[in-house]
Amino acid sequence: MKKLINAVPDVLSESLQGFAAVHGDILKLGDDNKFVCRKTLKPGKVGLISGGGSGHEPLHAGFVGMGMLDAACPGQVFTSPTPDQMLAAAAAVETGAGCLFVVKNYEGDVMNFAMAAEMMETPVATVITDDDVAVETSTYSTGRRGVAGTLVVEKVLGAAAEQGRDLAALKALGDDVNRRTRSMGVALSSCTVPAAGKPTFSLGEDEMEMGVGIHGEPGRRRVKLASADAIAEEMMGAILSDLSPKPGAPCLLLVNGFGGTPAMELYVIANSAQRILQSRGLTIGRGLVGSYVTSLEMAGCSLTVTMLDDATTALWDAPVHTAALRWGC
């Protein structure tokens, strides 16, 4: 194992300290590194809180800031944060309008956020993301996994919260955006969890894992390496089959790298994906390409499609200032 670390037990704390030092104008660390939160809160705004296992950076801490999350709770690598982390984050960012939890559909995350919600004394609601069409159940989840589509939900909700929408309205909006969002991924290599010291799984030189999860969970099947066009065709075919969009409808296309894929290759996949969308009579109203929901150093990518309307597009376009996303400000 070759990694830029000092000692395995210190990886998360040292990473968070470095993150907070570099982005101290936007955010700060909570006590004992339990959470990352906005440096400046907006009084009377619903507090948006998310979190999950580390190793998926910039998700979620990289999306803390104006126009997105108010706080993020980082667990150990690929391990859910604990309820006390969510409670501490909520206490830090709740300003009188309640809190909304955005939770990826993994059993540990769902259970721990639910426990925190039960213990909270202020109003709280939860949006669960489950955008992965690859498999119906997985190593970590009952039902579909929440993956890169979580970014879309967090961005849209963040903009709506900045406008002052109340907790019930934000809950309804988050559930609606999640219903209009689908994703699927492919892995060309494994990742190595520092504590394990070896790859999570092995792939032959000419193999790929179609439908892989963001923790390295098995996908639909292991197949021979194919062209970018063929990979995009299978992933986009599964996504569009599930979404059943109307011809002519606009969509958001997110091409997300898993941590070990260069931008040049992600744009090759984006080119393939846009041709497929065009052939199905769909238009890319908005797009985003980059490594936003990663799996440590895994090579591969995911495609996410969100069906847009004018209101959702306006919320996507609204100003955002976080460590990982910034526009309009």
Rank of each mutant, 00 (worst) to 15 (best):
V156F: 04
N256R: 06
V8Y: 14
Y106T: 02
P43N: 08
A196H: 12
A71C: 08
E217W: 09
S54R: 01
L173S: 08
P194G: 00
R286I: 09
V64D: 06
V11A: 05
S291I: 01
A249W: 12
G290D: 09
C73P: 02
H215G: 01
G248P: 00
P43L: 13
S13A: 15
C37L: 03
H56D: 01
G47N: 05
V77E: 11
A172W: 03
T40D: 10
T181E: 09
T192N: 11
G51N: 07
Q274D: 13
A195Y: 13
Y140V: 02
P194C: 07
T261I: 00
A116F: 13
I269F: 12
G67I: 06
G146I: 00
R179E: 02
E121L: 15
L240T: 08
S54E: 04
V177L: 12
A61R: 02
L59T: 01
E209L: 14
A114S: 12
I231S: 06
T306G: 07
T200Q: 12
M1D: 02
A311L: 08
G96L: 12
K171A: 15
V305E: 05
F19L: 03
E154R: 10
Q17G: 12
D31I: 11
G149K: 09
N6P: 08
S138L: 14
A299Y: 00
